Simulated scan of single mutants.
Amino acid sequence: MSAADRRAYRALRKRLRGLLGEIGVPRPWDLAEFCDRVARHRGRPIHLVPAELPPGAPDGAWLAGPTVDVIVYDADTTILRAEHIVCHELGHILLGHRGAGLGPELTPDVSPELLHRMGVLHRAGYADAQEQEAEVAASLIWKLAGRTLVAPRRALDPAQAEVVDRFAELLERDRDG
């Protein structure tokens, strides 16, 4: 990673930490509460729609309606994976990326069948950099929420865990610079 890439990464994390500090990441973690906080921050509701996505479709998509945001995610996945998909799409929202636009026919009671008929289950063409930024956002949300996709490999006694946690905090502060 070049020096410019490291600076851009640190700036992105700093920007995200600021946004997430304003919004607040709930601990203990609650995805619905976090979505409500993001919705309040944006001044428009966010609806989560689990759907059986066709083969080759992305695992999730953010659909920006005129007055509402809809996040469609793969219903055929684990709860943890679904939460990560939603956090990734929330990352796009928080970073101001453009979601797939929807017309005024969108209502809060959107059915997955309507979304299929509308053909909106394919990404709006995010650049690779935007996908990476959304993934950084999802990872940071999870980190602040104390979540992880994998269980820890080993259990530490409390004294060891405290040392590891302090070391991780120091590394994090150094990385955010």
Rank of each mutant, 00 (worst) to 15 (best):
R42C: 08
V86H: 07
R40F: 02
L63T: 11
D59S: 05
R44S: 12
V68Y: 05
G24V: 11
V38C: 07
R37W: 09
L53H: 01
R6F: 08
A137Q: 12
G43A: 05
V68C: 05
E89S: 03
P28G: 14
Y126N: 01
L140W: 13
E131H: 05
R13K: 02
L31M: 04
E162K: 00
I79T: 09
A8K: 04
L114N: 10
H122D: 11
P104H: 15
I46F: 04
A151F: 03
T148W: 11
R173F: 00
L114I: 06
L80R: 08
D5L: 05
R37M: 02
L19G: 01
A75F: 04
A51M: 03
R117W: 09
D176V: 10
A51F: 01
A4W: 03
D128V: 14
I46T: 03
V136R: 14
C87T: 10
E33F: 02
G99N: 07
P58R: 00
V70K: 12
V38S: 03
E22T: 12
I23R: 11
H97D: 13
A155I: 01
D157Q: 06
I79M: 09
V86F: 10
E83R: 08
C35D: 08
W29P: 01
P26L: 15
G146A: 02
A127N: 12
H41M: 05
A155Q: 13
A129M: 08
T67M: 03
M118N: 01
L106W: 12
D176N: 02
R27A: 11
R173S: 03
L94Y: 11
Y126T: 04
G43I: 02
D174V: 00
D109F: 06
R15N: 12
H84I: 04
G96D: 14
G177A: 10
D174M: 02
V70I: 15
D165K: 12
V136C: 12
L80C: 02
R147L: 08
G60P: 03
A32M: 07
A11G: 05
A100N: 09
T78D: 13
D109V: 01
W62P: 08
T78A: 09
P45L: 01
G125H: 15
R81Q: 13
D30P: 00
Y73W: 04
R98F: 03
I79N: 06
P26F: 15
G24L: 13
A138G: 01
T67W: 09
V86A: 06
A32I: 10
